[in-house]
């Protein structure tokens, strides 16, 4: 079996699918496997091929998914590429059925790869929604709004599209602390992505400690609005999981954290 591996980026993955498909046309889809790097455990029986990103091939794959299957299917594929675990082989199997069956593939939930793709889309979609809810911007003198976020899936660009619509005339940036890159939105301008060096990241970390009177006001509001007689920390944790609270102003520095 030949295993096609690639980096964890959209273009790389699409190119990987293209090359694997090309190989499979001669040798059969059953003799192909796709993997995201890093490969943890190599097997003796398989042959590993590393694929580099190629813009043309990426465009071809995206175009044929949209044209021959549906835009909905493309969203499934795109969301699956953002997922934090290796979904590449599932995407490949999903496309396999998709190019055979057409647009109805997204509803064929009795197929294992389709239901897994649905699950990825749901998880990534939910996390995008969580980011819309729980992201907090730190205001730097009302000029720039900076946000740190540590999502599981690679979703800060999708989150930023929401805020670009919401605050088109503000400068803001959303930083993925783990993946070390940021989405930057200049006021009334186009958004772009940029990688961050360690020093830049350290400097940007300080924004979370920046003095801002509205942080206190918000904490006051948050503490006041709960009803004492109805206290229910378990429900609160269900709705706002602890791992997402790291950058939320109202929970920062162990405030309002009821671990019991």
């Amino acid at each position: 079996m030949r295993v096609f591996t690639c980096k964890n980026r959209f273009e790389d993955m699409m190119t990987c699918i293209y090359d694997a498909w090309e190989y499979a046309l001669k040798h059969g889809h059953g003799n192909v496997k796709l993997m995201r790097e890093p490969v943890i455990q190599y097997s003796f029986a398989d042959e590993y091929v590393h694929i580099e990103a190629d813009e043309e091939k990426t465009k071809k794959v995206v175009r044929s998914i949209i044209r021959s299957i549906s835009y909905g299917a493309y969203i499934y594929v795109y969301y699956a590429t953002l997922y934090y675990e290796d979904t590449l082989d599932d995407i490949y199997r999903f496309l396999n059925i998709g190019f055979r069956e057409g647009a109805k593939v997204t509803t064929m939930l009795t197929e294992p790869s389709v239901i897994r793709m649905m699950e990825y889309k749901r998880k990534v979609g939910n996390e995008i929604h969580y980011s819309r809810e729980f992201i907090r911007f730190n205001s730097i003198d009302n000029k720039v709004y900076v946000c740190h976020w540590e999502p599981k899936c690679d979703i800060i660009y999708m989150a930023a599209t929401h805020f670009a619509d919401r605050m088109p005339s503000e400068h803001f940036m959303i930083i993925d602390d783990n993946r070390k890159y940021a989405v930057i939105h200049p006021a009334d301008g186009e958004m772009y992505l940029t990688d961050l060096s360690e020093e830049e990241l350290l400097r940007l970390k300080q924004t979370e400690q920046y003095a801002d009177e509205y942080r206190n006001l918000w904490s006051t509001f948050f503490e006041t609005i709960g009803i004492k007689q109805r206290e229910n920390a378990k429900c609160q944790r269900n709705m706002f999981p602890i791992w997402m609270r790291k950058h939320a102003v109202e929970f920062m520095d162990g405030k309002n954290e009821k671990m019991k």
Partner: peptide, 23 residues
């Protein structure tokens, strides 16, 4: 949203935090 304005709205609604009573 729109240029020069602040804000948009989504039909699903967006919660921004959960108080100690879980609401």
């Amino acid at each position: 949203g729109g240029k020069g304005m602040l804000g948009n709205a989504r039909a699903c609604g967006i919660c921004h935090s959960f108080a100690a009573d879980g609401r």
